[in-house]
Simulated scan of single mutants.
Amino acid sequence: MNLAVFRDIVVNGEPIPSTAIAAEAQNHSAPRNKPGVAWRKAAQALIIRALLLQEALRRGLTAEPEELSPGRVETEEEALIRVLLDEALKIEPVSEAAVHAEWARRPERYRSPPLWDVSHILCACDPRDEAARTAAEARAKTLLTRLDGDAKGFAEVARESDCGSKTAGGHLGQFGPGDTVPEFEAAIRDLPEGGVSPAPVLSRHGWHILRLNAIAPGQVLPYDTVRPRIAEALEKAAWARASRDFVARLSDEAEISGASLAPV
């Protein structure tokens, strides 16, 4: 990235070096071949940090870094920003009425995880080995053309699977979200009940032909069960709104050159 094409950024007389923005940009996503998007996101993040630290200094705040997790302790700047936000943001407790109203808006959103009953045929390979991957894919495609689409036909072809489940017609049993590799789960979610994957699916284990035998949709959970989750979500949303408003006020009162906090 050519740092010379970007203007210097100054927040209330405090410069933010291009090198700092370039380093921060590594933490922000951007469309391919558009590094300027990551740069602007990084610049905004550092502008906000500068505004918050300047406000903490203005208020004469001090803070002791806290342990966030085993082996992870706040930096002094993170601690100062935490103390500032704790002092500046006044969040009203979420009322029972607000929690209930959010739940009542669409109770069907709050369900137990679904269960999928799945069978598969595995053509095993190491995906990192190009030759093995190509050969296994060709074999999987050949097997796929032999399927009738029904469970009996699938079980017959599954005898040629490289998975131990071949003795049970490829049947893997039931599992839910997070019980298998992500690429496997994503493909299952796209299948209708009784459907077979239209093309082999690659995972770290090789190529899979998948069949969704049945699905048990998650059950709608009672209000008392989901109430803590809803209350927490509403509290986080209120905190996020308050913090955005606080930063906006600091920005309105600040002198910022070289960038803005306008949405990227």
Rank of each mutant, 00 (worst) to 15 (best):
M1H: 03
F6H: 13
F6R: 07
I9A: 02
I9W: 01
I9H: 00
V11Y: 01
G13V: 04
G13H: 06
P15R: 12
P15C: 07
I16Q: 01
S18N: 08
A22W: 00
A25S: 09
S29P: 10
P31F: 09
N33W: 09
K34D: 14
A38I: 02
R40V: 12
A43Y: 00
Q44P: 02
I47Y: 03
I47A: 06
R49G: 09
L51C: 06
L52D: 02
L53Y: 04
E55P: 00
E55R: 07
G60F: 06
E64T: 11
P65N: 02
E66I: 06
S69V: 04
P70W: 03
V73P: 00
L80V: 02
R82C: 04
V83A: 07
D86T: 07
E87L: 08
A88P: 01
A88W: 02
K90C: 04
I91T: 03
E92H: 01
V94L: 07
E96C: 03
A97T: 10
E102V: 03
A104R: 14
R106S: 13
R106M: 13
Y110H: 14
R111C: 10
S112T: 15
W116E: 09
W116V: 05
W116Q: 10
S119A: 14
S119D: 15
H120F: 11
I121N: 06
A124P: 05
C125H: 06
D126S: 15
A132S: 12
R133L: 14
E137K: 15
E137M: 12
R139F: 13
K141P: 09
K141C: 15
T142I: 12
L144A: 08
L144R: 07
T145D: 15
T145I: 10
L147A: 14
L147T: 13
G149C: 14
K152S: 11
G153D: 11
G153Q: 11
E156H: 06
A158C: 10
R159K: 14
R159Q: 13
S161A: 15
D162G: 12
S165L: 12
K166A: 15
A168H: 13
G170Q: 08
G173H: 04
Q174Y: 08
G176P: 01
G178N: 04
D179Q: 04
V181L: 12
P182W: 02
P182C: 08
P182G: 05
E185A: 10
A186Y: 01
A187H: 00
D190E: 15
L191A: 07
P192H: 13
E193C: 03
S197T: 14
P198R: 09
P200M: 09
V201Q: 05
V201C: 10
V201Y: 03
L202N: 13
H205F: 14
G206R: 08
I209G: 07
R211C: 05
L212I: 13
N213Y: 04
A216L: 14
P217V: 07
P217F: 07
G218W: 03
G218D: 08
Q219S: 08
L221C: 05
P222V: 04
D224Q: 08
T225A: 13
T225F: 11
A237I: 00
A238K: 01
W239S: 13
A242G: 03
S243L: 08
D245G: 10
D245S: 14
V247R: 00
L250D: 11
S251A: 15
E253W: 02
E253A: 11
A254L: 09
I256V: 12
G258D: 03
G258P: 02
A259N: 06
S260M: 06
V264Y: 04
V264G: 06
V264E: 09
